[in-house]
Design a protein around this nucleic acid. Structure first.
Lengths: 204, 204
DNA sequence: CAAGAAGCGGACCCTCGGTCCGCATCGTAC
DNA sequence: GTACGATGCGGACCGAGGGTCCGCTTCTTG
């Protein structure tokens, strides 16, 4: 009752929305810098007016979020309710690297999109729901590792290692091949998890 | 001879440049989001014309870089040729956490500026010289730690943990106090360094 | 002090995100 | 099928901000 909202959209509206997403997806994939893809470009490529974009998605970041969310859904559910090594049945010490590897692969597979999202506008990526989701999941898993402290910060720090622009820098300019990068990340995560987890907080 | 360039600048030019830097510094420190500080604002605050800014710094990112570089200089030299625990005389296992702590403190002390820089325009922060410098130093130190592999990636990953927007997120919205954050970072770095550094790179 | 170089500044341009409003299209009731 | 409101469409339009141009001022130098 509190939410009668959400009438089902009209047919043409749905079609236009889909066309916009497809066009945007395509443009972001092709173009070098996400900045170079303008809303007018997307509208033109989708064969709709600019206003249609803004009506459907609110603003530029809304569009990018919608795109990202669609791509992200499979990964999210795979982690939340899928089979091992990603799913909840996996013991934490294996699940953490699996999760980060999944995130890395996702960013490698969606480089331009991820870049567009994290570089979007100037509002911090840490506000975005998808980040909150990943961080929440990772932190929850970390918390189940005995002796590991500061799960909140640790989750942030680990996720920072797979930030889109870093991945792009390494894969793009750095020329680091995919598998090599996965190994390096795995090795790094292992270091964090393997260490004798007596908190070494040296005071001051 | 190959570089006759760099005539010494005219007096008023130097004065205006300094005024611009001071004004920009001030504005960035006051305003919430770096986005909200426009070039026109800076010009007005400095009492000069917009063209003077662009002549002196090339473009917006040039101005921010110049500001940042000035602030950064002391820290850079402290690491490169200062006394322990930052300077080169320090053994690697202590110098790495010292360096990262210095970076963290710097970002905490210059939050707005760092945010402005890393969020600047949309061009990756990994291209910037100051990042290259820090990464280079950190990697060089890491390389001197026996048994530690992938010093390049490790340096990136460690520096990612102190990225401006993460620091801002934790210190700002998260309300994490300064000392707490330093402890968490130290603990994280310790985990990376302390672990039995047999490279865990599982092949394939 | 004269002359030319160097710099100045604000009016101006362009791009781009975002909005407005008259018109077309859709869903529906008859 | 048709008439009629509601919903959506689209391109002209707006405002803001980065960056440039050009006639004028100020510094430098002999």
């Amino acid at each position: 009752m509190a939410e009668p909202a959400e009438r089902k959209p009209r047919k043409d509206a749905a079609r236009n929305r889909a066309a916009a997403l497809a066009a945007a997806d395509d443009l972001f994939a092709r173009c070098e810098s996400p900045e170079s893809v303008t809303m007018a470009d997307i509208a033109a490529a989708a064969g709709v007016g600019k206003a249609t974009l803004f009506r459907a998605f609110g603003d530029r970041t809304g569009l990018i979020h919608a795109l990202y969310k669609a791509r992200l859904e499979p990964v999210g559910t795979a982690i939340e309710e899928g089979p091992p090594p990603l799913g909840p049945a996996t013991p934490p010490l294996q699940r953490v690297p699996a999760l980060l590897d999944a995130v890395l692969r996702f960013k490698l597979d969606n480089r331009h999109l991820a870049l567009a999202l994290e570089g979007a506008g100037g509002d911090s990526p840490y506000q975005a729901d998808h980040y909150q989701r990943w961080h929440g999941m990772l932190q929850a898993i970390l918390e189940r590792i005995p002796g590991l402290t500061d799960s909140d910060f640790t989750a942030h720090a680990l996720l920072a290692a797979v930030r889109a622009d870093l991945v792009e820098h390494l894969a793009g300019q750095g020329g680091v091949p995919r598998e090599r990068m996965r190994e390096q990340l795995a090795s790094f995560v292992a270091k964090v998890l393997d260490s004798r987890t007596s908190s070494g907080t040296s005071s001051g």
